[in-house]
Nucleic acid binder design. Structure first.
Lengths: 347, 347
DNA sequence: TTGATTTATTGGAACGTTCCATTTATAGCG
DNA sequence: CGCTATAAATGGAACGTTCCAATAAATCAA
């Protein structure tokens, strides 16, 4: 069934009665060839079932149109939303992004990057896995392939980053909770080896500081950034002597976990314990009660990252400005006032 | 900054004082070279920051190790789970799968497939977009590139399919609802241009037939296969004169939508209206109430698809057997007995 | 010692494309 | 008609690898 010996540009040339150079020009849409010739060639291409060999082409022009997107957790819907934003931009530019998952595993990440580089990608958009070693991207940089980080950054790297204003988002969220009358606050999920974590936690602490929540009334529980992690955080928090009445969660997945754990205990998020998430994934507004969350304009960040990448490729540079996206707090049902306080500004 | 003129095998040869052939052999891990030579070469590779050019290599050996995974909806967590299963297998085989999203758009799908083919993929795992034209995969087949379909199939295609036993799953689910005492049943979501839909609906109707639910007591509401679609389905269903008391949903996303719409109306899934989903995504057990769903062993199907693909590549064939995965019904809280009936077998 | 065998290494052709420098055909002009 | 200018098409070298056939070096048998 499968036709033997895949057709090349030469087969087409023979079929169409022209030279291989002519076929090449047609393939590139050059205006130099006579329209009738082009038609003849295109017909031949169709007839022989020709598949363009980009590897061979790249040998000469070193200018592939594939962009690799390396993400640390495909199962987090957040990244799907990010990818959708990027794809919108890339599609318009005639570029196909290939997505590869590292599953938060630095070893896998090395393999994936190696493979992508071998394919001759034009650029890389990366959300680095936890525990990525500093040297990982050095070779790629020196090879002159543009990289942009999204969402996560590496401690001391010069690689441009597209990310939301994590600190500001956390400040907004914490202020909101405090204004609702909460006086014992928790920060749930994440771990300190992530720069993002430090930023979000930093914003949380800053707001506590500013609005006079003493350190003794703050509870920080590290944990997996997943539903499961969130459930565990809540259990831990409710076990302490003076448990918090509200929590800012590292991301929405953690927040969902907290809400589920609350429900399991017969408590309701919002009424009995205030929960705020981070990222504002699509599910947030559909959950019940709907989740208050820090909206980071995920798809917008994706678009931005794609644009920056395109620009870098075009100007063949490996440098670009960082971009910190604006954030906003979307207040929904999960963050009600502290029931034991009369200070809630929502009445 | 970026080092000029990327290093080739010849640069390494010069650096190490051997021939390019020797370098090539080292790269391929041939046992023919003296260990000390190999060490010397590997050091040179490290020193010059060499990146293997797979395109050039494929020119000779036409044997790439990349596999394309083309999926129709990256935002459906189901596909992430499927991908995770595949990755497990591919990782062990030293293969890197590249994922590309078609967003249910046949035109985008053509672009994505073209790009993947040009990269010289060794095989393609595809969940075809809705409205895929029959000819789409013909060229790829004749090019001798193995394809397997997952989850979805095309009406008259010879391409092997890895999918769950949709009909059986729907039968199990419908029987469950009928045994719970429900007598007016609905099937929510999906549309008839999908083979999967026909199978799932077919199973539903078969069970109704067998257990004596007359056609007049069955309600079929087509709709988007998303949360939004599910919410719409419920609204439609509750508006008819004799509304159903239970629904089998095309997939879990639809089921979640139905549950959210119920809650908005002050009704509770399980107690007031029975809901059964399909796919049993991870969220199903975390929702509240937990969703009864047809478990299809998503990751297992992914693994199976990856294995079949590997086998096809190895035996250079473009044919393989279909594989229909076993399914089971996972009963949780969302499918309580009909409250107006005393026939429920659970009480 | 000589020839045969084994072990390591190597040069060169080939893979399918692009692109430059040419060639060939067509048109324009005096 | 010859000359140049323009348009269209072409041959060949180059890209970075693999692999075959060939060589060189080391070992062995007689």
């Amino acid at each position: 069934m499968a036709s033997r010996a895949k057709a090349t540009i030469l087969d087409i040339a023979r079929e169409a009665g022209v030279s291989k150079s002519t076929v090449s020009l047609v393939l590139q849409g050059s205006g130099l060839i006579r329209p009738e010739t082009a038609v003849k060639v295109r017909k031949a291409i169709e007839d022989v079932g020709y598949v363009y060999n980009r590897g061979a082409a790249n040998l000469r022009k070193a200018h592939s149109n594939v962009i690799g997107m390396v993400i640390n957790d495909l199962t987090n819907p957040f990244f799907a939303e990010l990818a959708v934003g990027m794809e919108r931009v890339f599609q318009a530019a005639g570029v196909v992004p290939f997505i590869a998952n590292t599953a938060e595993n630095p070893v896998r990440q090395e393999e994936v990057l190696k493979s992508l580089m071998e394919q001759g990608v034009a650029g890389l958009i990366v959300s680095p896995a936890r525990g990525t070693t500093p040297g990982t991207f050095r070779r790629i940089e020196t090879a002159g392939v543009p990289i942009v980080f999204t969402m996560r950054r590496l401690p001391d790297s010069r690689i441009p980053v597209i990310a939301p204003d994590n600190r500001r988002g956390a400040v907004l969220a914490a202020e909101h909770l405090i204004r609702k009358g909460h006086r014992r606050l928790a920060f749930f999920g994440g771990s300190s080896d992530l720069v993002v974590y430090q930023e979000r936690l930093g914003g949380f602490l800053e707001a506590c500081e500013t609005l006079g929540i003493p350190a003794s009334d703050r509870l920080i529980v590290e944990g997996e950034t997943s539903r499961k992690g969130g459930m565990a955080c809540l259990e831990t928090a409710l076990a302490v002597p003076q448990p918090p009445t509200a929590a800012l969660c590292f991301n929405d997945a953690v927040a969902f976990g907290v809400m589920l754990a609350l429900r399991k205990r017969g408590l309701e998020a919002g009424a009995d314990f205030a929960v705020v998430g981070f990222d504002d994934v699509a599910e947030a507004e559909h959950y019940s009660p709907a989740l208050t969350s820090v909206a980071v304009d995920t798809a917008g960040l994706g678009e931005r990252a794609a644009h920056v990448m395109l620009k870098m490729i075009q100007s063949r540079t490996t440098r670009a400005e960082n971009h910190i996206g604006a954030v906003s707090l979307v207040v929904r049902e999960s963050s009600g006032p502290d029931r034991n306080s009369q200070a809630g500004d929502a009445a």
